[in-house]
Amino acid sequence: MKAIICQQFGLPDSLIYTEIPEPLLGNQEVMIRVFACAVNFPDVLIIQNKYQFKPELPFSPGGEVSGIIEQVGSDVKNLKKGQRVLALCGWGGFAEKVKVGADRVFPIPDEMDYVTAASTLYTFGTAYHALKDRAQIKSGETLLVLGASGGVGLAAVVLGKVLGAKVIAAASTADKLEICQKHGAEQLINYESEDLKERIKALTDGKGVDVILDVVGGKYADPALRGMAWKGRYLVVGFAAGEIPKLPFNLALLKGCSVMGVFWGRFSTEEPQQNQQNINELVEMIQQGKISQHIHKIYPLQEAPQALQDMLDRKIIGKAIVEID
């Protein structure tokens, strides 16, 4: 089968497009013929050996796929051959086939296309878990999204609007902010050209924001935390800027606020029933037309390294997808 392979840790241009044997199926796994695989920031990290999960070389990146089950392990009872599914595989998705543990595979409705399925699980799953389970955001509260034009960030903008929050989108360019506004952001901050702390103060009449969802980290975390309201919740989702910030925890004391980690992958393992409920709710929102993902571009399998480079260069607005024939 054809696949994109990481033979040595490095940047996207070190990946190769080649033929590899099909993976051997375990008793509690299913084999999926991949039709679409999402491009996520962890894919960029995992090929550089900078992610918390470290697969053995060689491997194929790509952690979020949709397709059809071709084979079912002998111990799998809840899934069947021919079923349309999406799956969180961790890695292995930039290939024609991938094996996945049955507990990481979720059926999709017949009316949902494969691109929609592959673009939904990681980003909307993360954002929904963050806002609903961790922050327990309430209608009328103010939500600030840092890195609002990325996959998780834009999903948070969309979901924040659905959940009744007043959404402030923060991103680095006017083009990115325009997309955020089209997806429900009421107020905008260009944190490359504006003072983030002062803009938060001005937009909230000095009150500050109730919830911050941060996928960027780096230099923006400190001024964002200083712009938090009393009893606010700071959601730590990722570090796309490349730097893990060192927050002054005296601010958490003075503001009575909480700093919360958001690790959707572990949540889905530790609390599978709640995660499945969240996915069911997201699928219903998609079917009702309440939420949708902005697709930046669809790349063929052989151009997956370019998709990862575009992610690394922060060119992607919304979600990029690798499509496999």
Results as ranks from 00 to 15, higher is better:
122 Y>E: 12
92 G>R: 10
137 I>E: 06
106 F>M: 07
4 I>E: 06
97 K>A: 02
63 G>F: 00
29 E>M: 08
3 A>G: 02
138 K>A: 15
57 L>I: 04
25 L>I: 02
7 Q>I: 03
50 K>H: 08
144 L>F: 12
21 P>L: 13
134 R>M: 15
76 V>A: 02
32 I>N: 10
71 Q>K: 15
124 F>K: 07
94 F>V: 03
18 T>S: 15
50 K>I: 11
97 K>H: 15
4 I>H: 05
47 I>T: 01
121 L>C: 02
84 R>F: 11
95 A>N: 04
34 V>I: 13
106 F>H: 04
87 A>V: 05
143 L>A: 11
62 G>H: 01
91 W>E: 00
31 M>R: 14
20 I>K: 15
132 K>N: 11
96 E>H: 05
131 L>M: 04
57 L>W: 02
17 Y>V: 02
46 I>G: 12
94 F>I: 00
24 L>D: 14
5 I>Q: 07
103 D>A: 05
22 E>R: 07
28 Q>S: 07
58 P>E: 06
96 E>W: 05
49 N>W: 10
39 V>R: 13
59 F>E: 03
9 F>M: 14
24 L>Y: 09
142 T>N: 12
127 A>D: 08
40 N>Q: 07
132 K>P: 10
58 P>Q: 04
36 A>W: 13
129 H>T: 03
76 V>D: 01
82 G>P: 02
34 V>Q: 06
144 L>N: 11
47 I>L: 09
88 L>D: 00
26 G>A: 10
98 V>N: 11
123 T>G: 13
44 V>K: 07
2 K>E: 00
115 V>A: 06
106 F>Q: 00
135 A>W: 05
107 P>H: 09
26 G>M: 10
9 F>E: 02
125 G>W: 00
81 K>Q: 14
24 L>C: 06
83 Q>Y: 14
107 P>D: 02
39 V>M: 12
132 K>L: 08
40 N>G: 05
62 G>D: 00
126 T>D: 04
130 A>N: 13
45 L>G: 00
53 F>R: 14
65 V>F: 07
55 P>S: 14
64 E>N: 13
11 L>M: 12
41 F>D: 01
94 F>C: 06
120 T>M: 15
11 L>C: 09
88 L>N: 09
35 F>A: 05
99 K>E: 04
99 K>V: 09
82 G>V: 00
90 G>S: 06
135 A>C: 04
39 V>F: 10
137 I>P: 07
29 E>I: 03
45 L>Q: 07
60 S>C: 14
30 V>H: 05
62 G>R: 03
140 G>F: 07
118 A>Y: 08
12 P>D: 05
60 S>Y: 07
64 E>T: 03
111 E>T: 12
80 K>S: 15
10 G>S: 13
24 L>W: 11
68 I>Y: 04
103 D>C: 04
112 M>K: 06
99 K>T: 11
39 V>K: 13
30 V>S: 08
85 V>K: 01
38 A>P: 09
72 V>E: 02
65 V>R: 09
111 E>G: 10
15 L>D: 01
42 P>C: 03
94 F>E: 00
49 N>T: 11
132 K>C: 10
